[in-house]
């Protein structure tokens, strides 16, 4: 018998293989943001990759929509402990953006409208693992969930899937982003429960 929380029973245990440690499943789509929601128009939206040499590659909304589109259905995991199964997205895989980008950088810092940043190893964006997502469940992505477009990096905690994304900066050195600077783990693998510094 547990010495903690006597009488606590909890919910069904059947999700164990699909739920990372310390997470619980939700049917809702909660929101985590550090500040107000930026209102970004697709008329002025642009996505820019800046390489370590300063070379830039930019796409307008229409140019982004002309790139190869992919549908993906995936589980997402928020560091605030909810997980949501089978979320349906449409977007552009990063492999399409990087087709003509020459780089030897190992890291990226994603920048968002509104000033948010987050850092990732470049390899975590490539080989079909990540997208710029603009559609959720068949509808344009709403502003509070990061619309018009956000990163979708479902194998990491969801703060890495930067909302309102406007660009990537490629770097040789790993540069901690917004949450990574105030206490969140630098990498954020939900299956290794990398929530906070030191985890």
């Amino acid at each position: 018998m547990s010495s903690f929380s006597p009488g606590f029973r909890g919910r069904a245990r059947s999700l164990a293989d699909r739920l990372p440690p310390g997470q619980y499943p939700t049917e809702q789509f909660p929101v985590l943001s550090a500040g107000p929601t930026p209102q970004v128009s697709t008329d002025t939206w642009a996505f820019t990759i800046t390489t370590e040499t300063g070379e830039t590659h930019s796409w307008t909304w229409e140019e982004m929509m002309d790139l190869p589109q992919q549908d993906t259905v995936t589980d997402i995991h928020c560091v605030t402990r909810w997980s949501k199964f089978d979320t349906p997205w449409r977007g552009v895989p990063f492999d399409a953006f990087f087709e003509d980008v020459e780089t030897s950088a190992d890291f990226v810092v994603a920048h968002s409208y509104g000033g948010y940043t987050t850092n990732l190893p470049l390899e975590d964006l490539l080989d079909g693992k990540a997208w710029v997502a603009h559609t959720y469940d068949g509808y344009p992505l709403s502003p509070e969930h990061g619309g018009p477009a956000r990163l979708l990096v479902p194998h990491l905690y969801f703060w890495k899937s930067a909302k309102w994304v406007r660009g990537l900066r490629l770097t040789h050195e790993d540069e901690p982003g917004f949450w990574e600077t105030v206490g969140y783990h630098n990498y954020g693998d939900p299956w290794r429960e990398q929530r906070n510094w030191g985890d």
Binding site: M1, S2, G22, Y24, R81
Partner: peptide, 16 residues
């Protein structure tokens, strides 16, 4: 804070 509860069979649940 995170609060962790443990059931008799070892199942745990955490909320903030």
């Amino acid at each position: 804070v995170d609060v962790r509860l443990t059931a008799d069979d070892g199942y745990q649940a955490v909320r903030s």
